[in-house]
Amino acid sequence: MTAETALLAVEDLATFYGRAQILHGIAFTCGAGEVVVLLGRNGAGKSTTMKSLIGLLRPAQGRITFAGTDITGAEPHRIARLGLGYVPEERRVFAGLSVAENLDIGRQAPRPGLAPWTPARLYTLFPNLAAARDRAAGQMSGGEQQMLAIARTLMGNPRLVLLDEPSEGLSPLIVEHMAAAILALKAEGVGIVLAEQNLHFAERLGDRAVVIEKGSAVWAGSLAALAADDAARQRFLAVGVET
């Protein structure tokens, strides 16, 4: 897939926090119905990459194209309205609002070519949420909050979702659930960029991987190639070790 045809194309991305340069020329693409995994240790720059894509951080350099539009430096709400969804690592559900209200905040108009998400459909995808729809989000467990964060973003009918470490800190059962939901999204034709430290989780879901180290993309290829590449695995194996 080339930068011209991909749903999301990132070229030469550099982002700073104040004077500290965090990203040094990240580049990758992601197509519809594709799962691209950003692998990397804690502090590698995965979250910073995602925040730069959604517009919460302004890249100092590089180009981001989404659905044929240059979104480099655009405001977050404009980017989100083009159909780029973002599920942050810290989940950031609105604690004082109920589950149903949280979903409503994410609501956007249906997008041509995609079956619109409704609360009813999302409650089927995440049955735990259905039972808790009137509960305050702040009172839910970590796993439920993660589901809510994803469901809330889906209410915007995104073409592509940035998922920042959705498996972090969750029980194996919930992680299974999460994996199934992500595969269901993929089957709908939604593109997914998944930040992960958990190599096993990534290998089950991902089509391609981009390994990030100290803010640079140091390896890119299919997950099958990563599985076959012992040297690379050796070098990046630490990312697969659960902490």
């Binding site: 919460l56 989100a80 309205r81 942050p88 004082g96 609002l97 209200e101 905040i105 915007g156």
Partner: peptide
């Protein structure tokens, strides 16, 4: 609801397209 959500986390509200 948007006002209440923005009172908690306005950045997130923006990232959801508001």
């Amino acid at each position: 609801r948007l006002v209440r959500a923005a009172t908690e986390d306005r950045e997130m509200v923006a990232a959801l397209g508001v």
